[in-house]
Write a protein that binds this DNA or RNA. Structure first.
Length: 932
RNA sequence: GGGCCGGUAGUUCAGCUGGUAUGAACGCCUGACUUGCACUCAGGAGGUCUGGGGUUCAAAUCCCCACCGGUCCA
C-alpha cells in the first residue's frame, strides 16, 4: 500500500503564489506547507507532541461561533462560491449495503455518484452532514472532544468528469483558505497544510490536513484512485472530498476548554451539575486541555500511558489527575453518547443484538455504565435525552417528532440491561462462592465466557468478587484475546461456497427487455433466442419471466421451441441479462422464435404476496411506530413473510390490528402505481423510507406506491389494485432476533385455506375433548388441572402401595424370599410382568427406611425386557455391599448393562428368559460381599 | 452475517463423565412461639425437567429438529 505520494502532487500554484514553502516536521517527520518563517513544526497537537493547543482562551477567529452559527457560516460561504446547498442525509446509511452509518459527507454520494452511475444532486455542492463514528468511542471524552461519536462534517464536493472539470486541488485549497481567513478571520500565516495520504472505502488519493493553532480543522481529500488488492487504479471521476470539522471549528472560535463546551454550552453545564461536578477547576481543565492532543487511545496506547504524559506536562501526580479528570471525561462522553443515541433512535434504529441495532445497544449500555460511575440515577438518562432532543430539534426537526418512541425504546433497553446485570451478578456470586469454598483462583477462561456469552464485563466480576473477598486478575490483553477468539471462529465459519459457474461472458450480451415491467399481467409472449449457454441456459431478447430478486422467487412455466415444450425451472438475472434455466438441455439455432408461457397461478400468487408485503409493512408502521423498517422478506405462494424491526414481542392485539389495517386497504381498492425515476428525484420526493428492502443499485429507481399507504423502491411485480388480493391473514409471528419480528401471512384463497386448516384443527380437538369449540379454553384449563391432580395422586398411590408392599414383606408373607446373613437381610422380590420402576424404587426405599441392615433385590421381566434393582441400606453398605458392582456384573447376563451407586443401582436387558440366572448370580455376589 | 450460552418447583438456580428430582434458597400454605427490624421453630403443598424425534435395559443428562430466551463480534 502506498504511504506517500510524490511531492509534486502537493505543489499547488496557490502555495507558490502566496509564499508557502514545503517543510518537514522535525518531530513527526511529516511534510507541511506554511507561510511564515516561524512555523518550525507541523503545528499539530499530535501524540508525538509537535505542538499543543494555543487557541484555548485565545481564539484566532474574529468572533465566537456556536455550532449552528458555524454551520451556517460554512454553508452560506460556499453558496456564495456557486455551490448548491444540499440537505443533510440520514445518519443511518440505508442506501448502502456495505456500511451501517454515515461517517462522512462523501458517504452520501458513494458509490453511485463517485462511480459515475448517477449524477450528483448538484455540482459543486456543499453540505453539513451529521456523522457517526463509533470507532472513536473510547477516545470520546479523554481527547476533550477532538474525537466524538457524533459530529457534523462540512463538505464541499466537486465531481470532475473526463469531459467536465469543475475544480480540483488548487481551487479547493483556495476556497478553504478564503473561508478560514476572510470569513473566520484567521491570520493567513496561522493556517498550516500538512501533506497526507487518504485511503478509505476502497478509494484513495492525496490529501492535505489543515491545522490552526494545534487543531486539525479540515481535511481536503483528492479522491482519484480505486484500491484493489492494495494497488491503485485511476478513477474516471476525480472527486473533491472535503471534511470540515464544524464542531472543532466552533471549538476553535470559542477557545473554551473542550469541544463539548463549544457544542453543548448550557446543556453541558446542566449535565455537570446533574453529575454533581459543580466545582471544576477551570484553570486546571484548560492546562490539561492544552495537552490533550497527546491523548489517543487505540490498540497500541492505553488511557494510562497517555494520561502519564499529560500529568508530566501539567505537573500533577498521575493518580491525582486521574481522580479529577475521570468524572469530567465521563460527563463529556455522556453528553456525546446521548446525542448520538437521540439521532440513531430518531431514525428508527431499534436496539437489538445484531447489525446496527447492536451499535445502539452498545452505546446505550456504555452510557448507562458511565452514569453509574458518576452515581447518577437512571432517571437522569431520560432527562438528558429529553434535553438533547429539545436542543437538536432546533436544527433537526424530525428528532422531536420521535421523542416518545426514543424514550420508549430506552425504557425497554434499560429493563433488558437491568435483567442482564441481575443475572450476571447471580452468576458471578455463585462462581465466587464455589471458588471461595475450594480456595482456587478465578479462572481466566471463565472471564471470557462470562463476557462473551453473558455480557458480564471483567470489571464487574472483579468488583463483585472483591466484595466477597476473592481476588480477580484481569489480564491486560483481555479484550484483545476476545477479539482473537472471534477471529478464529470467523475463519472456521468462513466456508465460502464456490459456485463453479460456467464462464459466460454475460457483459457481451445485449440486455434483456423486461416485459413484466411494462405490464405485470403478461402471461404469454414471443421472443427470439439470442444465446444458449451450456445447453441449459437460454438468453432471450425479451422476457416476461420474472427472475428471482427482492425476495420474490423466480417464475416458472415453459417455452415452446420448434413446437416442443420446454420447462423453465429457474430464472436468474446476471447484470442486465435474464438467464432461463431449462429442464434437460437443448440444441437450437440462435434467432429461433419461441413462445413463452408463464405458470400464471404461481406468478399471480406471488404478485399478491408482494403487494401484501407492502401493505403489511405500512400497517405495521402505523400500528407500532415509525421505527418499523423492513428487515427482510420472502414471498411465497402459500405463505409470505416479512421481518420488521420492533423493540418488543407483538401482542395478539397488535397482530390483529395490523391485519385489520391491511384488509381495510384491500377494501379501499387502492391503485398500486409503479414508476421509474431518477434516484435523486425519488429520494427528494419520498425520502429514505424508500429503501425498505435495503440498498437498491442503479441510476434509476423503480418506485412502487400504494396510495398514501406505502412507498418503496422495489423491483417486484405488483397487482394493479389492492382489491385483487381479496383478503389477507397473518398466520404466524416469531422473533428471529432481539428487535426483529417475523410476520407470516397469506392472501386470497390461500389465506382462507390457512384459516380452514386451523379451524379443522380446532374441530378435531373439540371432537377429541368432546367439548364445543367456544368452550375449548375452559375445557383445556380443566383438563390440565385434572391431569396435574391425577399425576400427584398417582405418585401418592405409588408411595402408598410401596408402603403396603414393604409391610407385606415385613409381615413375612413372602418371608421365604428373605434371607439373613450376618445380620443383613436380603429381600428378594419378583415383580413379574408388572415392571414399574417407580413402584419398585419406592418400595425398596420404604423397606430400607424400616431397617437399614437390608439389601433389596427386586426384579421383573416381561416379554421384551428384564429389570434388576438393588438397593442397600446404610448398614448394609458399611458391611461391604456395593449395589453398583452387583448390577454391573449381573446385567450382561440378561443382555444389557446397568449401574448406579453403592447404595442404589439398576440395570436391565433384553433377554428376560435369563432373569433367574442373573438373580441367582446376584445373590451369590451379595452373599460374598457380606462374607468378606 | 458469524460465534457462544441457556430453557428443571411460583422465582433464582444446582443436578447434565446417562442409573432414586431424599434437589437448594427465596416465595406459598398450616401450626407453635412471638406481637418492630429479611423474626424464629415445626410441618406441608408445589415438577409430563420447553416440545418432538433418535440412541439405550435406562435420558433432565448423549445426538438431531423445532420453539423460546440471553450474549459477544462484524
Amino acid at each position: 500500500m502506498l504511504n506517500s505520494f510524490p511531492a509534486e502532487e502537493y505543489k499547488l500554484p496557490f502555495f507558490i503564489e502566496e509564499g508557502f514553502s514545503r517543510r518537514r516536521c522535525p518531530s513527526c517527520g511529516e511534510y507541511f506547507w506554511a507561510q511564515g518563517s516561524e512555523q518550525e513544526t507541523c503545528g499539530e497537537s499530535t501524540s508525538d507532541g509537535c505542538a499543543c493547543y494555543s487557541f484555548l482562551n485565545n481564539p484566532p477567529t474574529l468572533k465566537r461561533y456556536s455550532l449552528s452559527e458555524m454551520r451556517e457560516a460554512f454553508l452560506s460561504f460556499f453558496e456564495k462560491q456557486n455551490h448548491t446547498r444540499i440537505k443533510p442525509y440520514p445518519v443511518v446509511a440505508r442506501w448502502r449495503e456495505d456500511i451501517y452509518l454515515t461517517h462522512a459527507s462523501i458517504i452520501d454520494f458513494q458509490p453511485y455518484v463517485t462511480d459515475g452511475i448517477v449524477p450528483p444532486p448538484a455540482n459543486p455542492l456543499v453540505i453539513a452532514q451529521p456523522c457517526i463514528r463509533l470507532v472513536d468511542i473510547s477516545n470520546t471524552g479523554p481527547t476533550f472532544g477532538r474525537h466524538l461519536t457524533i459530529f457534523e462534517m462540512g463538505g464541499h464536493h466537486a465531481f470532475n468528469y473526463p469531459d467536465k472539470e469543475v475544480y480540483w486541488k488548487d481551487n479547493t485549497v483556495r476556497y478553504h483558505h478564503k473561508f478560514m481567513t476572510e470569513i473566520l478571520g484567521v491570520k493567513s500565516e496561522e493556517v498550516v497544510y500538512k501533506e497526507s495520504v487518504w485511503v478509505g472505502g476502497g478509494n484513495a488519493g492525496p490529501d492535505v490536513e489543515c491545522i490552526i493553532r494545534g487543531l486539525e480543522v479540515a481535511t481536503l481529500v483528492f479522491m482519484q484512485y480505486k484500491v484493489v488488492n492494495s494497488k491503485f487504479f485511476k478513477l474516471p471521476i476525480r472527486t473533491v472530498d472535503t471534511g470540515y470539522g464544524l464542531d472543532r471549528l466552533a471549538w476553535l472560535s470559542q477557545g473554551v476548554p473542550s469541544c463539548f463546551h463549544a457544542i453543548y454550552g448550557n446543556l453541558l453545564d446542566k449535565i455537570f451539575s446533574m453529575a454533581n461536578l459543580d466545582k471544576i477547576d477551570d484553570k486546571l481543565l484548560l492546562s490539561v486541555a492544552r495537552h490533550s492532543g497527546l491523548v489517543t487511545i487505540d490498540k497500541n496506547a492505553n488511557r494510562l500511558i497517555a494520561r502519564k504524559k499529560v500529568a508530566e506536562r501539567v505537573g500533577l501526580p498521575l493518580n491525582k489527575l486521574e481522580k479529577i479528570l475521570t468524572p469530567i471525561e465521563n460527563t463529556f462522553a455522556i453528553a456525546d453518547h446521548t446525542k448520538c443515541l437521540s439521532f440513531l433512535l430518531s431514525e428508527g434504529i431499534v436496539p437489538s443484538n445484531i447489525k446496527e441495532g447492536y451499535l445502539a445497544r452498545m452505546l446505550f449500555r456504555r452510557t448507562y455504565r458511565l452514569l453509574q460511575s458518576l452515581k447518577m440515577e437512571p432517571e437522569m438518562f431520560y432527562k438528558i435525552i429529553s434535553m438533547q432532543v429539545d436542543f437538536w430539534s432546533k436544527d433537526y426537526a424530525h428528532i422531536k417528532k420521535r421523542e416518545d418512541e426514543i424514550i420508549e425504546m430506552i425504557k425497554v433497553e434499560e429493563e433488558k440491561f437491568k435483567d442482564t446485570i441481575k443475572r450476571g451478578r447471580g452468576k458471578i456470586e455463585r462462581i465466587v462462592d464455589e471458588i471461595k469454598d475450594n480456595k482456587r483462583s478465578f479462572p481466566n477462561n471463565k472471564l471470557s465466557e462470562l463476557y462473551d456469552s453473558h455480557g458480564i464485563t471483567p470489571e464487574m466480576v472483579k468488583k463483585i468478587a472483591n466484595e466477597k473477598g476473592v481476588k480477580v486478575e484481569i489480564p491486560t490483553d483481555f479484550y484483545a484475546s476476545i477479539a482473537n477468539r472471534h477471529l478464529q471462529t470467523e475463519k472456521l465459519g468462513k466456508e465460502e461456497k464456490i459456485l463453479a459457474k460456467e464462464k459466460i461472458k454475460i457483459d457481451e450480451l445485449p440486455s434483456t427487455d423486461l416485459l413484466y415491467y411494462d405490464d405485470a399481467y403478461i402471461r404469454e409472449f414471443e421472443a427470439k433466442i439470442l444465446n444458449v449457454i451450456n445447453g441449459n441456459y437460454l438468453v432471450l431478447n425479451r422476457t416476461a419471466f420474472y427472475p428471482e430478486g427482492g425476495g420474490q422467487p423466480a417464475d416458472s412455466g415453459f417455452l415452446l421451441v420448434n413446437k416442443k415444450k420446454i420447462d423453465i425451472i429457474d430464472v436468474q438475472k446476471k447484470g442486465n441479462v435474464v438467464l432461463h434455466e431449462i429442464k434437460g438441455s437443448i440444441e437450437v439455432e440462435k434467432g429461433t422464435v419461441v413462445h413463452g408461457v408463464l405458470d400464471w397461478d404461481k406468478r399471480y400468487a406471488l404478485m399478491r404476496a408482494h403487494t401484501a408485503t407492502h401493505l403489511i409493512n405500512g400497517a405495521a408502521r402505523r400500528v407500532l411506530g415509525d421505527h418499523v423498517w423492513q428487515h427482510g422478506a420472502q414471498k411465497g405462494v402459500s405463505v409470505t413473510r416479512i421481518d420488521i424491526t420492533h423493540y418488543r414481542r407483538l401482542s395478539p392485539d397488535e397482530i390483529h390490528k395490523i391485519e385489520t389495517f391491511a384488509n381495510q386497504v384491500i377494501l379501499a381498492e387502492i391503485e398500486v402505481e409503479t414508476a421509474s425515476m431518477s434516484r435523486n428525484k425519488a429520494e427528494s420526493l419520498y425520502g429514505f423510507r424508500l429503501y425498505q428492502g435495503g440498498a437498491v443499485p442503479g441510476k434509476d429507481i423503480r418506485v412502487v406506491r400504494t396510495g398514501d399507504w406505502d412507498v418503496e423502491a422495489c423491483g417486484g411485480t405488483h397487482l394493479k389494485n389492492t382489491r385483487e388480493m381479496g383478503f389477507i391473514k397473518i398466520v404466524y409471528t416469531e422473533r428471529i432476533q432481539d428487535g426483529v419480528e417475523r410476520l407470516g401471512y397469506s392472501t386470497g384463497l390461500q389465506a382462507l385455506a390457512n384459516i380452514q386448516k386451523n379451524e379443522g384443527l380446532l374441530w378435531k380437538v373439540s371432537e377429541i375433548l368432546e367439548s364445543p369449540v367456544d368452550k375449548l379454553d375452559k375445557t383445556a384449563v380443566k383438563l390440565v388441572k385434572e391431569l396435574k391432580r391425577a399425576n400427584s395422586q398417582n405418585r401418592k398411590l405409588i408411595k402408598e402401595l410401596a408402603t403396603k408392599e414393604s409391610a407385606t414383606l415385613k409381615q413375612g408373607k413372602l418371608v421365604q424370599l428373605a434371607k439373613k446373613i450376618k445380620g443383613i437381610r436380603i429381600i428378594e422380590r419378583d415383580f413379574e410382568k408388572k415392571i414399574n420402576l417407580e413402584l419398585m424404587v419406592q418400595t425398596a426405599n420404604e423397606i430400607i427406611k424400616q431397617n437399614e441392615a437390608t439389601v433389596a433385590l427386586f426384579f421383573g421381566a416381561n416379554k421384551k425386557t428384564a429389570n434388576i434393582l438393588v438397593m442397600a441400606g446404610k448398614v448394609a453398605v458399611k458391611k461391604g455391599i456395593n449395589a453398583c458392582f452387583v448390577v454391573n456384573k449381573v446385567s450382561p447376563i440378561i443382555g444389557g448393562g446397568g449401574g448406579g451407586r453403592a447404595n442404589f443401582a439398576q440395570g436391565g436387558g433384553t433377554k428376560p428368559e435369563k432373569i433367574r440366572e442373573a438373580i441367582q448370580k446376584a445373590k451369590e455376589i451379595i452373599e460374598k460381599q457380606i462374607q468378606e
